[in-house]
Design a protein around this nucleic acid. Structure first.
Lengths: 237, 237
DNA sequence: ACCACACTCGCTATTTCCGGTGAGTTTACT
DNA sequence: AGTAAACTCACCGGAAATAGCGAGTGTGGT
């Protein structure tokens, strides 16, 4: 089994198109003997991408009704780090119960597990597996495969990133150390006065850095500059 | 070997204190037969945490001189997702070359690999392993252990989170749709007037959203709020 | 039925930021 | 050895954001 998974990861890594990736990922159903496998970006914008083995009816219904706003799996993803069993989520609320029923009818299955995947540039995606079985069988499955799921989710994400951004270094922007310092402190909530104090320079000098960073980043104001710098991975707060 | 690693992951998961975790992680040196193992949070705020087997001299020097500002390993981490070989970084610039030399003298080793780890709440950490050996030997090591390193980094992070925040749901932040809209537009460079126009609401109403988002995020100003929201994956520009 | 919260609107004073114009020293690449 | 870029400092007027006081509606959960 572990060999099968290692081979699968390698295949994912070597995919040369999203279509190919799609078919490779769908094969996981056979490897794990489960009903469905899903990878989709949760992020509101950027690269909306979904790759699912669900029936088209359910997928379309989910999309049209914007069920991600109600789906406990998605909502729970924001606060979790490790792969989590769907059973551990809060299904008590009325909309959640309704959603669960509809998902069942849509063929999703009564058991599921999801892996949150966070990338640079704020990408956020979910890799999930769902199945129909008893709690005991499912618990055993999770016990064996939690680490594998984490790996698979990350490898799929990495592959998609590689396919979508082949030339990462094409439009590189380099901020000087002082510019970086300035944006980092501003992003951390300091105003110009305090940031200048912290860097032991005059506020005027600090302003020069902000403005040069702003012009490099083609940003219209400080907030924009900080946001762009974060999105490009030039700073982190 | 894979059994050893599975056992290690389990031990990490069951650690009941940071001290214990520290010793457990240090044992990785023996499992992998490498010089050093490091886990440290890169984030400026939140929970500055470091766990390293480096000599104290180097660690203190690094800290005092703020070498993270120059360290290509840290700078490269911001835009990477997958574990990356230190050799793949840009060591051409003068400060980088100097840093490399100093790190060598500090006993870090000439080879290394790092795993970026991103959590909810905007945590960002690096798990790294360094060693002294030839490129060929190192390449073989990476070939075998890349997936393991990813797992280990994530499990350590999860363990630290569990120890530091036993009550995960205490400090979770949810922005309302309008608050999200507001921060996204501000992060995209619009000023309040234009953002309000875009959302077809009065500027005053927009201001209310900004302030409620600011208070939820515990941010001192708009820039801070946008930065925090981005770091947490609540918005993306 | 009530409470909490999301959504919508307005005014004023104070603080902070933006844009434009300067100049001088040191460091680094070619 | 020359050029480019980073780093440091200063002034001023106008634009924008923050802080402080408000009020009213609609929805969802206990």
């Amino acid at each position: 089994m572990q060999n099968q998974i290692a081979a699968f990861l390698e295949r994912v890594e070597q995919c040369e198109s999203l279509v190919e990736l799609n078919t490779v990922v769908a094969e996981l159903r056979h490897i794990f003997q489960v009903d469905h496998v899903v990878y989709h970006s949760v992020n509101s914008q950027g690269d909306p991408y979904a790759l699912a083995t669900y029936g088209q009816d359910w997928a379309e219904y989910y999309e049209c009704e914007e069920l991600y706003r109600v789906d406990p799996v998605v909502l729970g993803a924001f606060q979790r780090f490790h792969p989590y069993n769907w059973k551990s989520l809060d299904w008590e609320k009325k909309p959640a119960r309704r959603f669960f029923q509809e998902a069942q009818d849509g063929g999703v299955g009564n058991q599921g597990v999801s892996v949150p995947v966070r990338g640079p540039h704020g990408e956020f995606a979910l890799f999930s597996i769902s199945h129909t079985c008893s709690d005991e069988v499912w618990a055993r499955f999770l016990d064996t495969h939690m680490p594998n799921l984490l790996l698979i989710g990350h490898y799929i994400h990495a592959s998609i990133r590689a396919l979508e951004f082949p030339e990462v270094d094409g439009n590189y922007i380099v901020l000087s150390p002082r510019e970086t310092d300035a944006l980092r402190l501003l992003g951390a909530g300091l105003n110009r006065g305090r940031a200048a104090e912290r860097l032991k320079i005059s506020e005027h000098t600090l302003r020069v850095y902000i403005e040069s960073a702003r012009s490099k980043l083609n940003a219209s104001n400080t907030t924009h500059a900080v946001a762009k710098a974060m999105a490009r991975g030039l700073i982190s707060i």
